[in-house]
């Protein structure tokens, strides 16, 4: 009984915790003024590799612009990663940068 529960728990942990892999990372020049950090993240869950477009990343720039009105976002670290679960995987693109209104 105990072994069964342990096995089920391990299965649940294995099922819900995905294996992450990084596809690409890029960085733009970092400013001297690094006061305000802005971050945008977009994700898409893909079932059995059925993905017909990558439009989900289009919101990334808009989101960063919205967080830094009338300023310049520099030092942007873009991380593109894949988290694989059982028969489902998630694409996640994260952009973190510094908002500078005095450039």
């Amino acid at each position: 009984m105990y072994i069964g529960k342990l096995f089920l728990s391990l299965m649940a942990v294995g099922f819900f915790s995905g294996c992450a892999s990084v596809n690409s990372v890029s960085l733009t020049p970092i400013p001297s003024n690094r006061g305000t950090v802005v971050k945008a993240e977009v994700t898409k869950t893909i079932f059995l590799a059925f993905n017909f477009n990558n439009d989900f990343i289009d919101d990334l720039v808009t989101d960063l612009k919205r967080q830094c009105p009338n300023g310049v976002v520099t030092g942007i670290l873009t991380k593109d990663e894949t988290i694989a679960y059982v028969i489902v995987f998630k694409k996640r693109v994260t952009a973190t940068g510094f908002c500078n209104a005095n450039l």
Partner: peptide, 22 residues
């Protein structure tokens, strides 16, 4: 439909500096 509408695979994304000054 599945055969003719290709699956999209994203390999890399890179973002440059954003100047949102108005």
């Amino acid at each position: 439909l599945l055969g003719t509408s290709g699956c999209a695979v994203l390999h890399k994304v890179q973002l440059g500096q954003i100047d949102a000054r108005d």
